[in-house]
Design a protein around this nucleic acid. Structure first.
Length: 275
DNA sequence: ATAAGGCCCTGACCGC
DNA sequence: TGCGGTCAGGGCCTTA
């Protein structure tokens, strides 16, 4: 599922295909994909606009238009963006199609229909409540410790809370907790300063390595939850130490990796290495 | 304010 | 082969 490294890869790889391109037509084939404005207004408003800037905030892609509007895309579980030749017709899972002035088309495809798209004048109305970027200076040990202080919820649940830190999802939460040697069910407020620092560093290390490898691709050919815009797989799934490896040997100690459910999410960890 | 549970969705997968 | 049930999960919403 697209988390920070996957969205980062998306932004980087799709930018050259969209930079400077003008939208000449827009089709919304599944209305609920467009969160704001309403789908009809969305289509009218985006026609004639030109892509100018490309960035990411948490798991949100921010495509800045020349007009000052921002096209915001959240891929959620199975969303994909592809820039394809205009001769290729959208498949049944393609919910939004933008025609471009060079004959190509931007397809938004999402088999589970969880993903959402916004066209707004102020991105803060969508991403304003997010916590700090985990790879930025704002994600300090002190700030992190402050957010965890007094919290009874599991550290796993808190890592998934985008107001605490933006961009970490189920995969990278499990991998970072393993790398930091922290048991996922521990109450967030019970972590020592040393553990909080280890966890912050682990989040950064894991995310940076995943970005280097263009993210993690999991799933099956027909329900591939993440593909790069060119259709290729990411590479970090081969370096997952615990995620979706229940029953396999821990790469550090050989103990069997366990799977439990926390915050309604599968959670994978080593009973020996994570305390 | 925090925590927990439901909801949205569809395809894969399992048991019969 | 077909059918029904279960599972996965991000973010938002409701409930306690």
């Amino acid at each position: 599922m697209p988390e920070l490294p996957e969205v980062e890869t998306y932004v980087r790889e799709i930018a050259p295909h969209l930079q400077g391109r003008q939208v000449t037509a827009a089709r919304v084939r599944w209305a609920r994909t467009i969160e704001s404005p309403d789908p009809t207004t969305f289509a009218e408003r985006i026609i004639g606009q030109r892509f100018a800037t490309f960035s990411r905030r948490g798991k949100y892609m921010l495509l800045g238009m020349e007009s000052g509007d921002t096209l915001i895309v959240h891929l959620r579980m199975t969303g994909h963006l592809f820039v394809l030749d205009g001769s290729i017709e959208p498949d049944k899972h393609t919910h939004v199609v933008l025609d471009l002035d060079n004959g190509q088309r931007l397809h938004y495809q999402d088999s589970r229909k969880f993903g959402r798209i916004w066209l707004v004048s102020d991105p803060a109305q969508v991403v304003g409540k997010l916590g700090p970027e985990p790879l930025g200076e704002a994600f300090s040990v002190q700030e992190f410790a402050h957010k965890l202080a007094g919290r009874e919820a599991s550290i796993k649940a808190l890592l998934l809370d985008q107001r605490i830190v933006a961009g970490v999802g189920n995969i990278y939460a499990d991998e970072a907790l393993f790398a930091a040697g922290v048991y996922p069910a521990r109450a967030g407020g019970a972590l020592t300063n040393q553990e909080i620092e280890r966890l912050r560093n682990a989040i950064q290390t894991v995310l940076q390595r995943a970005i280097q490898l263009n993210g993690s691709s999991l799933g099956h050919s027909s329900v591939q939850n993440y593909l790069r815009p060119n259709g290729e797989l990411g590479g970090f799934q081969d370096e997952h130490k615990v995620y979706q490896r229940a029953g396999e040997a821990c790469p550090q100690c050989g103990q069997k990796i366990e799977r439990i459910v926390l915050a309604q999410r599968s959670t994978h960890f080593c009973t020996i290495c994570q305390k």
